[in-house]
Design a protein around this nucleic acid. Structure first.
Length: 156
DNA sequence: GCCAACGTTGGC
DNA sequence: GCCAACGTTGGC
């Protein structure tokens, strides 16, 4: 089992949106970055655990936990010319882009802000700190445990 | 809203 | 295949 950090702008899709979706699953579509695509297509497995991160807001932070319920499959939003994620190079034969399905697990007791993550030397190697633009990032087990402790959700 | 970082594109 | 230009992301 592996750990990941998924970034989202809450104005676009928030952790509450995930919590409130009727069937408790939501497709993670619209990823248009090759490195993140490779994680979605090749590396992410069912049951992998996710840190859900809100970006592009005054206080960016990890706000909750989610998990993978379906592994990578073609992202058909790339095929819709009227959609905002349209990519004219994609086709049903060559989808280029992939998505996964995720399920809400639980909110953290307290959010773990980027500021706090930056202050912790044990988290200095996280891509979030070093290469913040990557939208899907691997998280080590140590980093996962530390962030859960900081968020008041350890040992569960 | 600014701008630095960085991924992608395209001319050569 | 290099690299400058361009577009996007995301912290501030």
């Amino acid at each position: 089992m592996a750990y990941w950090l998924f970034k989202t702008e809450p104005g676009c899709f928030s952790f509450d949106d995930l919590k409130n979706c009727p069937d408790m699953t939501e497709s993670w579509d619209g990823v248009r970055n090759f490195q993140a695509r490779n994680f979605l297509r090749d590396a992410i497995k069912i049951g992998d655990q996710i840190l859900f991160y809100h970006s592009n807001i005054p206080e960016p932070a990890v706000v909750g936990l989610a998990e993978i319920v379906r592994t990578g499959y073609p992202d058909t939003t790339a095929l819709n010319p009227n959609g905002e994620h349209y990519d004219p190079k994609a086709s049903s034969e060559k989808p280029i882009w992939y998505m996964v399905d995720v399920r809400y697990v639980k909110a953290l007791q307290k959010i773990v802000t980027l500021e706090c993550i930056k202050q912790n030397p044990l988290l200095a190697d996280m891509p979030l700190v070093k290469r913040s633009r990557l939208s899907i990032q691997p998280v080590t087990e140590d980093e996962w445990q530390i962030i859960l402790i900081m968020g008041g959700a350890s040992g569960q």
